[in-house]
Measured scan of single mutants.
Amino acid sequence: QVATSTVRILGMTCQSCVKSIEDRISNLKGIISMKVSLEQGSATVKYVPSVVCLQQVCHQIGDMGFEASIAE
């Protein structure tokens, strides 16, 4: 089973930030795809909930120095 959710990301300033986040999160087990939008300050994450949760994704992004939260 696959889920798609949006994560809000604060602190991104350039495409390099976007690429860094996409590269790191895409390597997590259970992540199918991730598309980060600098303009919208968010990311669309396609993932397998039984393998990885959005809290883990937000935590990983937080470790990179950005502020991440699950969009309502």
Rank of each mutant, 00 (worst) to 15 (best):
I25M: 07
Q40G: 10
G41T: 06
I31F: 03
V2L: 07
K19Q: 12
Y47W: 08
C14A: 03
A71W: 14
F66K: 02
V7I: 14
N27S: 14
S42D: 07
Q1N: 10
S26P: 01
Q60L: 15
Q55W: 14
M64N: 03
I70R: 04
T13W: 15
V57D: 00
A3M: 13
V57H: 02
V52M: 07
K19R: 14
T4C: 15
V7N: 01
T44C: 13
C58I: 15
K29Q: 11
I21T: 00
K19D: 11
T6I: 14
G62M: 15
V48T: 07
C14L: 03
I61A: 02
A71F: 11
Q56H: 10
V51F: 07
N27W: 06
S5R: 12
Q55G: 07
R24G: 10
A43R: 02
V57L: 06
I31D: 00
S33Q: 10
Q60G: 05
V51N: 02
A3Y: 12
V52R: 00
M34W: 05
G41D: 06
K35A: 08
E67Q: 12
G30S: 03
I31A: 00
Q55V: 12
Q15R: 08
S33E: 10
Y47I: 02
I31E: 00
R8G: 08
A68G: 03
K19I: 09
C14E: 02
K19L: 08
V36W: 03
E22G: 03
E39L: 10
T4R: 07
M12G: 00
I31R: 00
V45D: 01
T13G: 03
S20W: 06
K46Y: 08
D23P: 01
S20E: 15
E39S: 10
A3W: 14
V2Q: 07
A43F: 05
E67A: 12
G65I: 04
K35S: 09
L38K: 01
Q15Y: 13
I70A: 08
K29E: 12
K19Y: 08
V52Y: 02
G62I: 15
T4G: 02
I70E: 06
F66L: 02
S50I: 05
R24D: 04
S5Q: 08
Y47E: 01
L28R: 02
D63P: 03
F66D: 02
I25C: 05
E22P: 02
A71Q: 14
G11F: 06
I25R: 02
S37E: 06
I9T: 00
E39F: 12
G30E: 01
K29P: 13
V7Y: 03
P49G: 04
G41N: 12
M12V: 03
I9P: 05
Q15W: 09
T4E: 10
P49C: 05
S69C: 08
G62T: 15
E72H: 14
A43C: 04
I61K: 04
V52S: 01
Q15N: 10
L38A: 01
L54N: 01
L54S: 02
S37Y: 09
R8H: 13
E22K: 05
C14N: 06
S20G: 05
Q60Y: 14
G65M: 04
C58A: 13
C14F: 04
I61N: 02
G30H: 03
C58Q: 10
M34Y: 04
R24W: 05
L10I: 13
L10Q: 11
T13M: 11
E22A: 06
C14P: 01
V57I: 15
S16I: 14
S16T: 13
S26F: 05
C14H: 04
R24N: 09
L38H: 03
L28W: 06
S42W: 08
I32K: 04
Q1D: 15
V51P: 00
V57C: 03
S50Q: 07
S26D: 02
K35R: 11
Q55H: 13
S50E: 11
L10S: 09
L38V: 03
